[in-house]
């Protein structure tokens, strides 16, 4: 699959797909999308990059081992539920904050958001680790 066209276009395509996947992740609460879909998009982006330019550059770009990313996502998702203990409500109950910034911009923050980011990381990490391991020539 080491074609010139793919190699040229892969970096741009990958960047766009990852950015898009983050948009899908963050807007997912109100529009189609969310952590799972976003994660799949990002995973295919990295898989594509790996096919085009080899596994080494992907691993360097990710910096962390994909499974470590996945594990961190798991931790984040699990911990986002712990916050509810401080409010004396059951585990994983969604909690919301609406902090206001200067200029009247309101940014809704919530534990489900962090939970969703955790889901995204788990999906990306696990799938990328499988894909990269398969792409690697031993």
């Amino acid at each position: 699959m080491n074609t010139l066209i793919l190699r040229t276009i892969a970096p741009t395509l990958t960047s766009l797909m990852v950015i898009y996947s983050i948009i899908v992740l963050l807007s997912g609460h109100n529009q189609p999308g969310g952590g799972f879909i976003g994660g799949l998009i990002a995973a295919s982006a990295f898989a594509l990059y790996g096919i085009a330019c080899g596994v080494g550059p992907v691993r360097r770009a990710l910096y962390f081992h994909p499974i470590a990313i996945s594990g961190f996502g798991m931790l984040l998702a699990g911990l986002s539920g712990v916050v509810s203990f401080y409010k004396d409500v059951p585990y994983l109950t969604g909690l919301w904050w609406f902090p206001k910034f200067s200029g009247g911009i309101e940014v809704p923050l919530s534990t489900p958001l962090f939970f969703d980011i955790g889901v995204w990381l788990v999906v990306v990490g696990s799938l990328v680790s499988i894909a990269l391991a398969l792409e690697e020539k031993d």
Partner: peptide
């Protein structure tokens, strides 16, 4: 749950524990 996407709200809020199991 402050979300218009019902599927996502179910996944990350109403049924978050199931999702936690799934990502495990």
């Amino acid at each position: 749950a402050h979300g218009r996407n019902i599927v996502n709200v179910i996944l990350v809020d109403f049924r978050a524990l199931d999702t936690l199991g799934e990502i495990t």
